[in-house]
Amino acid sequence: METLEKVLTPEEQFQARIDADIRIEPKDWMPDAYRKTLIRQISQHAHSELVGMLPEGNWITRAPSLKRKSILLAKVQDEAGHGLYLYSAAETLGTTRDQMLADLHSGKAKYSSIFNYPTLSWADMGCVGWLVDGAAILNQVPLCRTSYGPYARAMVRVCKEESFHQRQGFEIMQTLCEGAPEQKAMAQEALNRWWWPTLMMFGPKDEDSPNTAQSMNWRIKRFTNDELRQKFVDMMVPQAEFLGLTVPDEKVKWNEERQAYDFGEVNWDEFWSVVKGNGLCNHERLQARVQAHEEGAWVREAANAHAAKRAAREAVAA
């Protein structure tokens, strides 16, 4: 064993640890490309949590009851927390919070395209929780076993909090579906708009996702985009049926042989167009984010000034 280890390059030793499912920790040696891939993925994930607060924040003041408002506030606050866990995980790889935020605000960094769609009715709060958080959970559960320790630990915490997000969304949908015909129609209309964009959340088709193989090899990713998309359809079609809603895809059909649902093709032109910045809300979301950051500058400065003053006072007293 010892003689074997001596001939292994650092890359080979690293891969051997990955293959043995030994987690990589911040100070461990890692290939540059592994570090870069993780910084990109974790910071994109963090940005998504942050920008993801905006479409739901849109409805906090207009929630139909105090109960719904409290729930929505708690959910949005959780998403801020998720962003913080993830930024912290990314920082262990040597980037800084300021750098990541600068990249988000300049448009250099990406976030999940789903948040570039508008939330037009209250039923959208149902669809966001039920479908968007549902898709996020499918993505995130395997990440609890991802090879980078701080990322995996952050995801464990995130996953614990996510399940209430999906349930409260489903409950909104269920309430609407059991209500007046107009309410049910509102639920169906929201599902019609959100179904396809949520399928896009899993990313491009496997054959158009050149980085997947490397990410799977490093055990950053545990399932391919298409595998997760299939799981999502299999999970959601029966739930939509339970609600008495119809998924807006004529090709959805149970395939006895595959023991899975067949479904239609995502509009990939739309997907790439939104990724490139031409979604309905790309501009608005980024602007809101930058504005929040700039308008919060005085708070950050004041806190620094206050901390310095207090430290000086304590130094004198000591």
Binding site: G81, L84, Y85, S88, E91, R97, R153, A154, R157, R300, A303, N304, H306, A307, R310, A311
Partner: peptide, 20 residues
């Protein structure tokens, strides 16, 4: 150990830790 966060001073760090 549960994670990390940014804060201007210790008091704020404890308060933020509570919230996060």
């Amino acid at each position: 150990h549960v994670g990390s966060l940014h804060a201007a001073d210790a008091t704020m760090a404890v308060q933020n830790a509570r919230d996060v």
